[in-house]
Design a protein around this nucleic acid. Structure first.
Lengths: 168, 168
DNA sequence: CCCAATCCTTTGACAATTCAAATAACGGTT
DNA sequence: AACCGTTATTTGAATTGTCAAAGGATTGGG
């Protein structure tokens, strides 16, 4: 066997319901996002030969066609700095991204999509959108809207209770 | 800087609202779970020197004190087979888990928690539950229950639209 | 003008991840 | 008992991930 059997995974405590509601919700969020991202990763790979982090990174660059500094990319993708370096290197090797250093601040590296990168990304983005509609096909529009709203609350709550610094 | 700035990440398309509702929801789910799991990983590391996958794996073993076969662990944790091997190896090196091969089927490896593993895990689990209550502190109980229910719908929908085999 | 903070990126060590291919053991059929 | 298909785990190559430390470049204060 080459991968976990998605239908019977049990991150969630199905047999014992003894966890607290927050924990129960968390386990369900985790298993759901894992399920969906595994599927999307699989399709991205099969149809475009791309990885999910590459797709995420390109999505950010597509929205800022003049390019982004690597640190900015790191922030937006929630990927650590060190990781961005290699990610961009590989995309550059594939001809989808170029790196350049502006003359006025030579500490900086700006990454931007090439023409090929833009073309490739827009095809991927369209497919991606369709996959999600497919995967969420049995969920009503109302429920999707409600989830979007309520998950926003969770995110806000979590963001304001982080241990690290970075709040003001 | 050593990590992304959690408060200003932008996996979500905050500026353009042009994405379809399913995509919008997906991006929000992703950024929220990433935000929370980064925080939990950080705390696990700081307070227990453990990683998140290790915690997940131990959680499964804690629920089945007689131990689990590696393939079963793979299914439950949604971690690929190849990955389980190394994960268990490292936990065994730390004395938290032992591996044994039953005599009646020597293809099989069963992993189970050691005494130390059980003690360690229960401390981690308790802390983990508290962290989640903390992080979700601003979300009402009703909303948590509703989210749990509705995310269940999303999960069921996604599970029944997977491309791979594994359905019947 | 220089020195010391500060900012941005890269590097290095290691863990987690996937996938595919290899290895090993079982089980039934002949 | 030798073979075959199946099942269980490991291995190997490549990517992604974190973290900490190091590197280079800029800026501001003395």
């Amino acid at each position: 066997m080459t991968e976990p059997d998605e239908t019977s995974m049990d991150l969630e405590i199905t047999t014992h319901a003894r966890s607290k509601p927050e924990t129960r919700l968390w386990l369900r969020m985790l298993s759901t996002t894992k399920l969906i991202s595994t599927e999307i990763r699989k399709r991205l790979r099969a149809e475009f030969g791309a990885t999910l982090p590459q797709f995420d990174l390109m999505a950010q660059l597509y929205r800022e066609q003049e390019g982004l500094r690597l640190g900015e990319l790191s922030r937006r993708t929630m990927v650590t700095n060190g990781n961005i370096t290699g990610l961009v290197e590989r995309l550059e090797a594939d001809g989808l991204v170029i790196r350049e250093t502006p003359t006025d601040d030579r500490r900086v590296t700006v990454a931007k999509l090439t023409e090929a990168g833009m073309t490739t990304f827009s095809a991927m983005a369209e497919a991606h959108e369709g996959w999600l509609r497919d995967l969420m096909g049995d969920v009503s529009e109302d429920m999707i809207a409600a989830l979007w709203r309520d998950i926003g609350r969770v995110k806000t709550s979590a963001a304001s209770h982080l241990s690290g610094p970075a709040e003001e």
